[in-house]
Amino acid sequence: MHALSILKPFGVDLFCTGKKFLVFNLISKNLKTKYHRSVLGLLWTLLSPLATTLVFYFVFKVVLNVQIPHYLPFILSGMLPWTFFSQTILEGMESLVMSLGLLSKVPIPLQVFPFVGALTNLVTLSLATPVLIGAALLSGVPLSSSLILLPVYYLILFFIAYGISTTLAILFVILRDLRHIMGIALQILFYATPIVYQDSMIPEKYRWVIYTNPVAFAFIDLHTIVGRGEWPIPEHLLVLFAWCLVSLLSATALHKLLGAELVERI
């Protein structure tokens, strides 16, 4: 009982522990309708990150001749988790407004919708992981035992993205022009995160970009694990755990503050 209360900070059932069957059914609905029950359907959703990866490969490797070994799996190891991260935030932000039909007819805790969206995307990311590891092997990256850390980083990105998307989903109900701003913000964050480049390439006086970026260390470590086949620096995990907490607590606080009367405002 006491151990479980950590899952419900300040009485907000952030991880929908009381609605497991509902969460399961909504995810199953999403997966069935998104992929039309086929592998091709899953590959279709990967088309966008794969195409973007090839574009960056062409621009940076072929045209600009950037000196990063195994550049293709290097970008891919950042691009797939980034697609998960940004999609979760953008879709999650609109999830409450999109679910108005349901929320105004059935009492459902509002965090269910961003939570289900984030979990659905996490399943997609997990199913796409063989493509990522395959690309690394083909490119000749040594297969490292550090790959067992991959799920840890997926979960970290999941917590950060879920917290941010829930926070934004609540704000989006009141401030409908948030979508434009978030589109731009995520684009800036993409280039401020070492995804298509290495963090060591950033000049010393701009290092603060990395240190103030909630997800930078996650992508640095993903590059280390998949792109180079090495073990990441453990201190990075501490910083990332702190960002998880900040993100989830901001969602909890906003839920506490505005959650009760939110449905009426949509």
Partner: peptide, 25 residues
Amino acid sequence: GAGFHQDLSGYENIFLNAAILGFGR
């Protein structure tokens, strides 16, 4: 039929709808 989804079968929608109404598996 709150939350019914067009592409799911009637049987699948029973489970979806029941879950939405707050019932268990």
